[in-house]
C-alpha cells in the first residue's frame, strides 16, 4: 500500500540495474541481500562486485541505485 492505493506487483516501483552483464529490473529499494535471496543464492557461496569494486558481505544490505553494475560470481571448474 502506498498513498492509499493498492499497487499490485506490476505497479511496484522498479529500477534497472546491470546484473552479470544483463539489464535487469529490480525493486527500487533492492539490496544485494534481497537479490541473492530471490535467486536462492547463499551469500557464503558467492562473491559480489558493485560497479567494478569488490563488495564485502557486511555491505550486502546496501540499497542499490539505478544503473548500478552488479556482478555475482562463484567458482566453476578451471585449470
Amino acid at each position: 500500500m502506498r498513498h492509499g492505493i493498492d499497487y499490485n506487483q506490476e505497479l511496484e516501483l522498479k529500477m534497472t540495474i546491470r546484473l552479470n552483464g544483463e539489464e535487469r529490473e529490480v525493486a527500487d529499494n533492492a539490496t544485494v541481500e534481497a537479490i541473492l535471496e530471490q535467486m536462492r543464492l547463499s551469500p557464503q557461496r558467492v562473491a559480489v562486485e558493485l560497479n567494478r569494486r569488490l563488495l564485502r558481505t557486511e555491505n550486502y544490505n546496501q540499497v542499490l541505485r539505478p544503473g548500478d553494475q552488479l556482478e555475482i560470481v562463484t567458482f566453476v571448474g578451471g585449470g
Binding site: 552479470n20 555475482i72 562463484t74 567458482f75
Partner: peptide, 8 residues
Amino acid sequence: VAVRRERL
C-alpha cells in the same frame, strides 16, 4: 578453480 558469473 575459476571464478565465473553465477548462472542466474
